[in-house]
Amino acid sequence: MTKARQPVIGFIGGGNMARSLVGGLLQAGRGADTILVSDPSDAARDRMAELGAIGLSSDNKALAAGADLLVLAVKPQAMRAVLEPLAPMLARDRPLLVSIAAGLSTAALRRWAGAVPLVRCMPNTPALVGAGMSVLYGTADVTAEGREQAEAVLATAGAVRWVDDEALLDAVTAVSGSGPAYFFHFMEAMIKAGIRQGLDPDTSRELVLQTAFGAARMAQGETDPGTLREQVTSKGGTTAEALAVFAAGDLMGLVDRAVAAAADRSVALARELEQSEPDA
């Protein structure tokens, strides 16, 4: 039986996120000859070359001509300049486009690329260590096969989930996109609190990071976080005393307001990006 040909995946942009995805694909067993990367930076291409014998170029058109799926991994401000020269080729070949650029709607991307099948993705920074959360939205012309291909790329960097409403990506940005920073900030606060209680910095850091890691592992099980919190909280005990301080400071309300502010800012940033487009 003839083995099915693996689709060729082209990455336009060779930054950290693209490098993480390429590394994940190679570790998952994808052939290096099915991965292409284009970047104008010699240094970026050199870093990519360290991963394996993938195809490297500084020419986006040459890369796009050989790819079945294109991952757009450039900064949002550079996207128009990248896509418009490719539009005739994209209209002819109709590869699947997967954008990991924050804040750019599918409508904006299609103004520059044309009406091609498009998946918009919101990853987060833990993808750099293979523990990311990526949320995907696909236009109506993305086939089931296309969805599988896009998911296979992002799944190498962590968990993947789809939404059917593009507007929900603003909430996604506020929860999982910005979310790592919230946890980092809480860890910072815990480490500093431990030091104020007499722990040396290294010990406090290890206690906090391992506790966060273990709590996250437990929360990924079948028991929801609220129940886990109740199970570890004894009436009149130390945990209950600390949680009472959080409640007095309206921690739940504070988190709700912070996430809402991030979602509102995501909407505003997308509007700013589109309004800042140069005249054609």
Rank of each mutant, 00 (worst) to 15 (best):
L70K: 03
L97I: 08
E84T: 15
A81Q: 12
M89S: 15
V82M: 07
K75W: 09
L72T: 05
D93P: 02
L70P: 12
P85W: 08
V74M: 13
S99H: 02
L90E: 11
M79D: 03
V71T: 11
A81L: 02
A81G: 12
P88H: 12
L90K: 12
M89V: 03
V71E: 11
V74L: 09
P95C: 01
S99M: 03
V71F: 09
L83G: 06
V82D: 06
L86P: 09
A73Q: 12
D93Y: 00
V98R: 00
P88S: 03
A87N: 00
L72N: 10
P76F: 11
L83C: 07
L70W: 06
M89A: 14
A87M: 11
A73D: 14
V82L: 04
M79T: 14
R80D: 10
R94S: 14
V98Q: 00
L72E: 03
L86T: 10
M79S: 07
A81C: 03
L83H: 02
V74I: 14
P85D: 11
L97C: 06
V74P: 09
P88Y: 00
P76K: 06
P88K: 05
R80T: 05
L83T: 10
Q77M: 12
R80E: 14
K75H: 08
A78T: 13
K75C: 06
R92K: 12
A87S: 13
L86I: 13
P85R: 05
P76A: 07
K75I: 10
A87T: 04
R92G: 01
L83A: 10
A73W: 06
L70C: 09
A78K: 10
L97M: 02
R80L: 05
P85Y: 01
P88A: 02
S99L: 04
L83P: 08
P95L: 06
L72V: 15
M89I: 13
L83K: 02
A73P: 10
A78Q: 15
L96Y: 04
D93Q: 15
Q77V: 15
E84Y: 05
A73V: 11
A81N: 09
E84P: 00
A78L: 12
K75F: 11
D93V: 10
V71Y: 10
R94C: 06
K75G: 03
A87D: 01
K75N: 13
A81S: 13
R80C: 08
A78E: 09
L70Y: 07
S99E: 05
A87L: 04
K75D: 04
D93C: 02
L90W: 15
P88W: 01
V98W: 00
L96A: 11
D93N: 02
R92F: 00
A78P: 02
L83D: 08
L96I: 12
L96M: 03
